[in-house]
Simulated scan of single mutants.
Amino acid sequence: MTDYDVLRVFCAANGGYGNELGVVRDGSVMPGRSERQEFAAKLGFSETVFVDDPERGVIDIYTPSARLPFAGHPCVGAAWLLDVPELVTPAGVVGARQDGEFSWIEARPEWPEPRTLRQYASAAEVDELPVPPPGEWVYAWAWEDEAAGRVRARGFPGRGDGIDEDEATGAAALLLTAQLNRALNIAQGAGSQILTAPQPHGWVEIGGRVVLEH
């Protein structure tokens, strides 16, 4: 079995929750796209990262069913694990920094796959939503405290690949931040926390706590 690490990304203040991420630190053991895709499907995490150059931060990201040019929680987790100033993804170069308990990346809203950002009237409505049928990628959100920038959100990938709900979705948080053009403190899933902030020239920072599970 190929060696891999499991991280939890966008954890709560107590280190709980967060979205699991598989990381194969030595991508050379599995260089082909088809075998990487098969391995990501076998692991079953919402995303798995293959590190092709740990010093330069070159990474390759897969869901159980597709290769992604960019994704939020894999980049935040990989930046923390590799402790590099940037990551090189097919979408572009992702800036990275560590700030106390938070790992941050800087990316562009054009990079993630399309998502439907669907606003609801209250956090309670978001909490009560059933998982929608496969189809579009839906990021359901509502203000918990608009003045403070606090958001309640849930992510439904809709791919039909066994991931009915994403515990924490950095790319969707990036898109929402770009749409609202303001810093956000997002509570997603069962208890994960995502921080964001718009940056000059259309960039967005996304930050969260990362824990090495094993």
Rank of each mutant, 00 (worst) to 15 (best):
A78D: 08
A78L: 11
W80F: 13
W80A: 13
D83T: 10
D83I: 10
P85K: 04
E86G: 11
L87E: 08
L87T: 11
L87R: 04
V88H: 14
T89M: 10
T89N: 08
G92D: 08
V93H: 12
R97Q: 12
Q98K: 14
Q98D: 12
D99Q: 12
G100P: 10
G100M: 13
G100R: 07
E101A: 15
F102R: 15
F102G: 01
W104V: 08
W104Q: 08
I105C: 02
E106Y: 10
E106D: 13
A107N: 05
R108M: 15
R108Y: 13
R108T: 12
P109A: 05
P109F: 03
E110L: 10
E110D: 15
P112L: 03
E113V: 14
P114T: 10
T116R: 14
R118A: 09
Q119C: 13
Y120M: 11
Y120D: 10
S122C: 13
A123I: 09
A124Q: 15
A124I: 12
E125V: 14
V126C: 04
E128M: 13
L129N: 03
L129Y: 06
L129W: 06
L129P: 07
P133K: 01
P133S: 08
P134H: 01
P134C: 01
P134K: 01
G135K: 01
E136C: 01
E136G: 05
W137T: 01
V138M: 11
V138K: 02
V138I: 15
A140W: 08
W143S: 02
E146R: 11
G149Y: 01
R150N: 13
R150I: 11
V151T: 03
R152E: 08
A153I: 08
A153H: 02
R154L: 11
R154K: 12
R159L: 14
R159D: 12
D161F: 01
D161K: 00
G162W: 08
G162P: 02
D164L: 14
D164K: 09
D166P: 03
D166Q: 09
E167C: 06
A168C: 06
T169I: 05
A171P: 06
A172M: 02
A172D: 00
A173G: 06
L174D: 02
L175A: 02
L176R: 01
L176M: 00
L176I: 01
A178T: 00
A178C: 04
Q179M: 09
N185H: 15
A187G: 15
Q188I: 09
A190H: 12
Q193L: 15
Q193E: 13
I194K: 03
